[in-house]
Design a protein around this nucleic acid. Structure first.
Lengths: 153, 153
DNA sequence: AGGGATTATTTTAGATATAAAATATCGCCG
DNA sequence: CGGCGATATTTTATATCTAAAATAATCCCT
């Protein structure tokens, strides 16, 4: 094991940057659209999925949250008519979520704002820097922690 | 504005990596010590502050959370005797939090686990990579978002 | 010194997350 | 074809977080 703490320092900085950006983006969405970043994530996933929509399980996977969270975050979006929830005709257990026309329109506006904010925050980085950043991030592997914990047990 | 979406792609990756690590570390702390990552952050801040401890406001600042969250996250740590809360003798409004001997001991154990987990997760990166990563992260500026939002208003 | 503005923190109300229990439906085996 | 284990989702009980109201103590001006 190395004697310094380069990895911990990098991790603390990664966490601070991510939290800072997340808060700023969330504040932006709430202020301009009255929706949280979590709801934007839902709209984004459903927008990508297209007309077929996504089953609750698939949506949960893309959002990286628990099943319960998906049920809860979709509820206000349904109430406001941005997304709809249908039961799969082939499987009565499955729920299928999809964007409404209204939801698609609002998502487009939110995505444009999001894009502009992120471009601002990353303005100091060159395209090459951003590629390097992605390459480095790709090498970080959270799964190794769970593995290491299992080995220790 | 650039025509591609390099910044958004980098941001999404940054967010996913940060969330993944945060969840893995939190699960590690909960499983091995019965404490959340938030509580670890409190112990860490107080450990650095030393015997003098930190006022509630200073602690809030270091944790990057709201005042209310600080009150709430410290409560169970006080109940379990890991930290203590004293009123500043020179200012009856101010609360001063500091580590107890028991808290310092538990923090040392948690910090060792944390260090090992992070080293594992970052194992694929060279020390030079980690310096590069920190340099790139340092150039990302969430404050530009708030600024940009204000300008637009 | 008295009293209102300021400052420090806690409390409260509401949003969002998780884990686990509950509910509902499906699919298959005998 | 009837029932039981597996699967999909929701509900419930907690844990945290934020924003704003409430509480408490200090500062400072006249």
């Amino acid at each position: 094991m190395s004697d310094d703490r380069e990895a911990v320092r990098a991790w603390l900085m990664l966490l601070a940057t991510s939290r800072g950006l997340e808060k700023a983006v969330d504040a932006g969405f709430r202020g301009r659209f009255g929706h949280s970043i979590s709801r934007f994530d839902v709209l984004s996933a459903l927008d990508r999925a297209g007309a077929d929509g996504l089953r609750a399980g698939a949506l949960t996977e893309r959002l990286m949250v628990s099943d319960g969270a998906t049920t809860q975050v979709t509820a206000p979006l349904i109430r406001e008519g941005l997304i709809r929830r249908n039961t799969d005709p082939n499987d009565g257990r499955a729920a299928i979520f999809s964007l409404t026309k209204k939801g698609a329109k609002i998502f487009a506006d939110m995505a444009a704002g999001h894009r502009a904010w992120i471009d601002d925050a990353f303005a100091a980085l060159s395209p090459r820097d951003m590629k390097t950043l992605r390459r480095l991030l790709a090498q970080i592997d959270p799964a190794r922690i769970a593995q290491s914990r299992k080995d220790a047990a």
